[in-house]
Simulated assay, not measured.
Amino acid sequence: MALALQIFSTVKDANAALKSAGTRYLGGGTLVVRAANEGDISVTGLVRSTEPSLSAIDVAGGKVRVGASVTMAAVARHPELGILAKAARAVGGPAVRNMATVGGNLFAPTPYGDFAVALLALDATVTTQDGETQIDTFLDRRDASRAIVTSVGFTLPAQDGFRFLKVSRVKPKGVSVLSIAVLVERAADGTIASARIALGCMADRPMRARAAEMALVGATLTKEGIAPALAAANEGTSPATDPIASAWYRNEVLPVHLGRLLLS
């Protein structure tokens, strides 16, 4: 099946072209091109933009803005984005990371989307021509979105405040059994003042473990302190059963790996 590709110098013009039926935005192509190759006849045309801001990374005053066309490889090697290097390297092998983009990962279905899990834990914002949206809201509504994502933004956390883990059966680039990202802020007495826990593969898109987050507030990062959070980790989850793992297995191993990540 032949696909028409239209390239525009501005996001505005690319957004206008996306209004045509059957068109899809082409970022790195790791999702949409594969879908077309596998026979998705709903894709009849591809649109992309070469606007320079889409490939920019800006870090200033503790604030980060990453263009939607920035690749996983570019994130992994950026000297000021070390906290995200592990999450970026969790996406496929080198060839995939040289193509896969930050914006595209936001739309990746389970069991993919490991980088989006990290962004969810970081409470990122997602920017389109319609404005800026919190990532929680964006992920909930992403299937209905037709506006091109232009960037994501977040605040750099404290050095030891952010942690990420991908669990897979094939190292180093296997598909996820699950992925977990945690952002914790501690009070002066060492207890946890706030927590965000994001999970991949525990629903059809990245989700928050809100019950576990609430259980962590006021606790200490000790085996005893995190026990209530681990007991609540599976609340609200609906993991898939696929060739990688069963829903039962994902539910069983989630508290184990969350505990290891919190205590690491």
Rank of each mutant, 00 (worst) to 15 (best):
119 L>P: 01
168 S>P: 02
148 I>W: 00
147 A>Q: 03
203 A>R: 13
166 K>D: 11
109 P>A: 10
194 S>D: 15
156 L>P: 03
127 T>F: 00
89 R>K: 10
184 V>E: 07
158 A>Q: 11
164 F>Q: 15
94 P>R: 07
135 I>D: 02
110 T>Q: 11
161 G>P: 08
103 G>V: 13
220 T>W: 02
126 V>M: 01
124 A>R: 05
154 F>C: 06
170 V>T: 03
97 R>Y: 02
205 R>M: 06
103 G>F: 12
197 I>T: 05
108 A>K: 07
169 R>K: 14
165 L>G: 04
91 V>L: 04
221 L>I: 12
197 I>A: 04
178 L>I: 06
189 D>H: 04
175 V>R: 02
203 A>E: 12
203 A>N: 14
142 R>E: 03
87 A>Q: 13
213 E>G: 14
128 T>I: 05
165 L>N: 10
109 P>L: 04
108 A>N: 07
90 A>I: 11
158 A>L: 08
218 G>I: 12
140 D>T: 11
111 P>Y: 12
96 V>K: 08
195 A>K: 04
95 A>K: 13
102 V>P: 01
211 A>H: 11
167 V>L: 12
123 D>C: 01
126 V>E: 02
187 A>R: 07
97 R>G: 07
113 G>R: 05
193 A>Q: 02
150 T>E: 05
208 R>E: 05
107 F>W: 03
173 K>A: 12
170 V>I: 00
170 V>P: 00
213 E>N: 15
87 A>S: 13
117 V>D: 13
139 L>V: 09
143 D>M: 07
98 N>P: 03
207 M>A: 10
141 R>L: 00
199 L>F: 03
170 V>W: 00
178 L>W: 05
217 V>N: 04
123 D>K: 06
190 G>C: 09
161 G>V: 05
114 D>K: 09
209 A>G: 11
151 S>K: 02
196 R>L: 03
101 T>R: 10
159 Q>S: 15
170 V>S: 02
167 V>D: 12
221 L>V: 11
86 K>L: 14
177 V>I: 13
198 A>R: 13
181 A>E: 02
168 S>K: 09
98 N>G: 14
205 R>G: 07
97 R>K: 01
152 V>Y: 03
217 V>P: 03
90 A>Q: 10
153 G>A: 15
138 F>P: 02
121 A>D: 04
115 F>E: 09
133 T>M: 07
192 I>F: 01
161 G>A: 15
152 V>I: 09
97 R>W: 01
182 V>E: 14
164 F>G: 15
